[in-house]
Design a protein around this nucleic acid. Sequence first.
DNA 1: CTATTTTTCCATCAAATGATGGAAAAATAG
DNA 2: CTATTTTTCCATCATTTGATGGAAAAATAG
Lengths: 215, 215
Amino acid sequence: MPSPLEKARRDPDSTKARILKKARTIFGEYGFHGATTRMIADEAGIDISTLYYHWGEKGDLYEAVVIDISTDLQQKLAEVESIVRGRPLAERMDIAIDCMTDYLFEHPEISNLVLFRYFAKTRDESLVDFRVPEVVSDIARSMGLCKDKKRVPNIVKMHVLAMMNAIHSFVSGESFFRSMLDIQRDEYVSMVKETLKFILLPAFAGPASKKGIQD
Amino acid sequence: MPSPLEKARRDPDSTKARILKKARTIFGEYGFHGATTRMIADEAGIDISTLYYHWGEKGDLYEAVVIDISTDLQQKLAEVESIVRGRPLAERMDIAIDCMTDYLFEHPEISNLVLFRYFAKTRDESLVDFRVPEVVSDIARSMGLCKDKKRVPNIVKMHVLAMMNAIHSFVSGESFFRSMLDIQRDEYVSMVKETLKFILLPAFAGPASKKGIQD
DNA sequence: CTATTTTTCCATCAAATGATGGAAAAATAG
DNA sequence: CTATTTTTCCATCATTTGATGGAAAAATAG
């Protein structure tokens, strides 16, 4: 039998799916403790008990949200990989930065929730797996930073984490940073891309870098 | 008359200061909503009403914490600047990365709280200033990325934000990332430094960079 | 030592929040 | 159409959590 999450992903117009969608943004904005089930129910335009009927307790809903965004992220990464496959490294990174930045700015709750899970403790610690290790290895391989997905050296994992953190930080910090820079959203987005390339391309695809596979 | 925060900073052994110290770590770990006044009071070994006696309502304590870490951070930056002043850019960055990384790993609640303020909404929005703009401009000038502290171009601010985010992310994400890499703390710290230099030095101090002042 | 002020804690409150039972309503099956 | 299942909502509960009053204790002043 399908899990509640599978049902919701299968039928995006269902009430279940609508609750999940709102839960993503509310949990993303306020974190686990900052978000209340009432806020989510209100946003979804339903009674709070309907939320509990569909998703069980708050922690279960949160878990579903985490798995949901994790799945989306993996799908997007696979999509990007199929686009950049075969191209030279500098081009791969250039395209990947553009794609992932656009995607995450369209779904900022993904970056928010990823960062929340990295950094914030939860009073009741029920750790969802989150599949970060796989994601990191996937990126390492598709960016051609290592030969074998199975054996990614730690330093390469760190490089991938640095890239991911850089994007997530700029996406999640948008309101804070933009008010500081006093610019519009689209200008901010293109400035983020520019900055990411300024920082990342010289290190990974610049003239002094190894420009390819290492393990 | 001195504010509660000034009193606490003046007398680090006082109960007031002890509460503030615990509040830093608890707010840093759990965020504003995840932290409870009872958790902080318990950690400080005092009754909850003593906490309220010294600091007033929860939001006021949080505000004090934010200003406290912001002050510490500015002091540390000034200290680092005095160390690197006059040296060539690559050396400046190398030393600054080492110093700031060590410092923030000693006080990870600073990185945690900075990121929380960047990313997380608070149900009651009482924004503390946080002095990020000044900090960014200070760093831009002390790293020699611009001539005039007063007129820092937006793209330079973005570069500084990218650097700061990179360090804070690795510090705050320690437990998550370290369990992924399966390494000890000291190895993680040195790997963070290595990675930061790998990413940042080519962009800012590499052969292709402008190696100096721009405005 | 005595009076005053400051500090601490116990008991308690009010509001917010997670959660549920059960009736009504809507959808589905036959 | 009727019976059954699924879904929704109202009312309500128990716990957590922010917050306070007031008495006791400790520190300070005179």
